[in-house]
Write a protein that binds this DNA or RNA. Structure first.
Lengths: 289, 289
DNA sequence: CGCCTAGTTGAGGTAAGTCAATTCACGTGG
DNA sequence: CCACGTGAATTGACTTACCTCAACTAGGCG
């Protein structure tokens, strides 16, 4: 049985794992009026922002005041879309802006001289793209749109100004960056010390947890636009081996990665097998009041 | 030929790779009077701080004003020392302080349930220890002193307060954190997509570059307190295989890892072999004036 | 003196890679 | 409407990079 992921990914709309971000992602290519629709009306932009995944995320660490919210608002310069497969920026590029992912999936990766690719992380709605690149002044990685995506652009100068004027926001963003780093660290441990099956299982579980936090996934599974090639490049494996590992996990009745959908057939057993511990993703409540 | 690393590491004092941090590291265990000696006199503490590796590092990104320097000064709560092998804090621990490494080497690592260890990064003088843990409120990793070390403690509350009062300092620290993350990312790529020999070579080169930035290393090599076990846990390899790889690299006349010293026998050839690109460690000048 | 740790080397096993062929779904152009 | 090319997934056969187990040496230290 062979299926193109796009079909199944689209089919996810029929399931109960859909959400607004998701639907937006699928619709934008067909409906250019999307912007007007969602941002129409008085204060639409502001109201929209307050429900943005980023605001939700930062709000988990710092209780944001009205002033801080509006500072966050002015950061969003313009809305842009990229089609699937398109690079937002490249490693080595300098002076580029950062982005906040509003809908769709992206990946940050590095290409080696021999053409091999290592995917460092996948980004989902609410995540930063290229924040590190702005601070380091030159990008150490590339970012590609995996699906069609919507982003809001953030200019480097605006970002640095905001830090000076709204220090609590700077702290919140530092916190978000730390959380991203924690994920990269976990990824590193995963690749360095786990075998292919545990590694794959662990990775899918982490992805599931992150998606659940944004409301696009659950313990049952999640819609997933990744190909086995993406997985291979993320996990430091060959695509052929990823295929075999996925089959093994499926045969064991733990996860099914198929048709653009990841189903956790036996969540507890899988989490146990993969030694998965999602604690570092948790955040009880605002640390800064 | 077999040698304990400690002997050779000490022997490095005789070479031209010594520096103040280094000598401090070796001396502190024998001379309790070290503190008084180095900080004695009028304004000793302040003068000392301005030449601290951390100040040098942050100064490379943000031109620090007098007020910012003194804010940085008040951050340093108390000076502490840890003997080699001692853990500063553990994964899962909450509410602990952060540290700035003044002398010696440390490693941050994670332990898996089956006892395997993955070293995420080594820290050298000027590096933060546990910055991420403070922001995430609970530590996702452990930190161990590899040699006897000196650190200054930073209380979480002080750090967050400083961010609010001195936003440029917050930006500088965010930058430093980004740089750390870039190193972790490079490490991830290294483990994910390079074979054992390239990986080892690349890693030693990166370590050399970082040490050179702090003045404790050069293109010729550097004094190195790491064991082959440390290397194995950092590179995601077995200690036995690391040994064989090191032998191969030595036989090829590229690097010699021996007696607590790493010698780049043919720097250019090694860098070429390992596809080493140190550009992400560079920082032309202050980005914020 | 004897234990411990670090390093070294050999023999043999295995997880993961490479190469290659096949199937399927999809898009495109004639 | 069908031929064709393409990209994703699948599977088998074979190779290899790295691991495990094990034995041994040397030095440090109580």
């Amino acid at each position: 049985m062979v299926h193109a992921p796009a079909e199944g990914f689209r089919a996810a709309r029929e399931t109960n794992y859909q959400d607004t971000c998701y639907i937006a992602l699928i619709d934008i290519s067909h409906r250019p009026g999307f912007h007007d629709r969602s941002l129409a009306g008085s204060g639409g932009w502001r109201a929209f922002l307050e429900n943005t995944p980023l605001v939700r995320k930062l709000g988990a660490f710092v209780a944001l005041s009205g002033a801080e919210l509006s500072a966050l608002e002015t950061l969003h310069k313009r809305r842009r879309t990229f089609v699937a497969g398109r690079d937002l920026f490249h490693q080595g590029q300098s002076e580029q802006a950062a982005f906040i992912l509003a809908s769709g999936w992206a990946s940050s990766y590095k290409i080696l001289q021999d053409g091999q690719r290592q995917i460092v992380d996948f980004q989902i709605p609410g995540d930063f793209l290229g924040l590190r690149s702005v601070l380091l002044h030159v990008s150490d990685h590339s970012v590609e749109a995996i699906t069609d995506i919507e982003v809001t652009e953030i200019l480097a100068t605006d970002l640095l100004e905001t830090f000076e004027r709204t220090p609590r926001l700077a702290t919140a963003i530092l916190w978000a960056a730390s959380r991203d780093e924690a994920m990269v660290v976990e990824h590193l441990v995963n690749i360095g010390r786990r075998n292919a099956a545990e590694r794959t299982a662990n990775f899918l579980l982490e992805l599931g947890s992150r998606l659940a936090l944004v409301g696009i996934g659950s313990r049952a599974g999640f819609a997933c636009p990744l190909t086995q090639n993406h997985l291979a490049d993320a996990l430091g494996l060959s695509a052929v081996h990823v295929n075999r590992v996925l089959r093994k996990l499926r045969d064991k009745g733990m996860v099914t990665f198929r048709d653009g959908f990841v189903a956790f057939d036996a969540y507890e057993r899988l989490a146990d097998y993969a030694e998965f511990d999602p604690s570092y993703l948790d955040q009880a409540g605002p640390l800064l009041r």
